[in-house]
Simulated scan of single mutants.
Amino acid sequence: MTDNKNITWHDYAITKKQRRNQNGHESFIIWFTGLSGSGKSTIANALAQTLFIRKINSYVLDGDNVRHGLNKDLGFSEKERAENIRRIGEVSKLFVDSGLVVLTAFISPFQEDRDQVRQIVEPKEFIEVYVKCSLDECEKRDPKKLYQKARAGKLKNFTGIDSPYEEPINPELVIETNSYSVEECVNNIINYLEKMKLI
């Protein structure tokens, strides 16, 4: 472990406010959480397209993609999942500081882990979006055949089957993908961002 006594924080020559002013919009995290198959990545990417058209700079951090690189050394134990989210939180904070909107699509099953990310950024910089979808519907979709593997005992510690998912206590938004189209869900988020004067 690094000796913190030998580490010094260096202030940046360009501030977050200056980057935001240049970009013409605020910077913040939209944290999509929900069961596998609920539609997190689909909604995040559709929202990114909408923001791109509106000339709002954003980037999607997807759970599977990040585990191909930054977090490829982590498994799926409770401890490793917490570390996965901690790292993503720190990376997301850097995106916010750079003046970008970061869209994260992670199951992130534990409230404590999500709250820790919220606490490392400023108020209004963390928007928790609960992508709500019933377990039955997620299993029907099962785009990666993960539920099928989990039910067969071939995949351990799978959220919703043999590992818990803690629904957000007080999310900024709840998006019910059981009941609404991708376009309707994206519009709901855009309306919220406009109401909060973030875009």
Rank of each mutant, 00 (worst) to 15 (best):
T2L: 15
N4Y: 12
N6D: 14
I7L: 14
T8H: 12
T8C: 10
W9H: 13
W9E: 09
H10Q: 13
Y12K: 15
Y12Q: 13
A13H: 11
I14E: 12
I14F: 10
I14M: 10
K16D: 10
K16W: 07
Q18W: 04
H25L: 04
E26T: 06
E26C: 10
S27H: 08
F28G: 05
I29G: 04
G34S: 02
S36T: 15
S36W: 09
G39T: 05
K40M: 09
I43D: 00
I43C: 00
A48F: 08
R54P: 00
I56D: 03
I56C: 09
N57I: 13
Y59S: 11
V60N: 02
L61Q: 10
L61H: 09
L61I: 08
D62E: 08
D64A: 01
R67L: 01
R67S: 01
H68N: 12
G69K: 04
L70S: 05
N71C: 15
N71F: 04
K72P: 00
D73V: 09
D73W: 01
L74W: 06
S77V: 03
E80H: 03
E80C: 04
E83P: 05
I85S: 06
R86Q: 15
V91G: 08
V91W: 08
F95E: 09
D97N: 14
L103M: 07
F106S: 13
F106W: 07
P109H: 00
P109S: 01
P109E: 00
Q111V: 12
E112V: 12
R114I: 03
Q116L: 11
R118K: 15
Q119F: 04
V121N: 06
E122L: 12
E122I: 01
I127S: 10
E128S: 09
V131E: 03
V131R: 04
K132I: 00
E137F: 03
D142S: 07
D142Q: 08
K145L: 03
K145F: 04
L146T: 08
L146P: 00
Y147R: 10
Q148M: 05
K149V: 05
K149W: 08
A150S: 14
A152L: 12
A152T: 02
G153P: 14
G153A: 09
K156R: 11
N157I: 09
T159D: 09
G160Y: 05
D162T: 00
P168M: 07
P168A: 02
P171Q: 07
P171G: 05
E176Y: 08
E176C: 09
T177W: 00
N178G: 09
N178E: 15
S179L: 10
Y180H: 12
V182R: 02
V182C: 02
V182H: 04
C185L: 02
N187D: 14
N188S: 11
I189H: 07
N191V: 06
Y192P: 03
Y192D: 00
Y192W: 10
K195A: 08
I199Y: 10
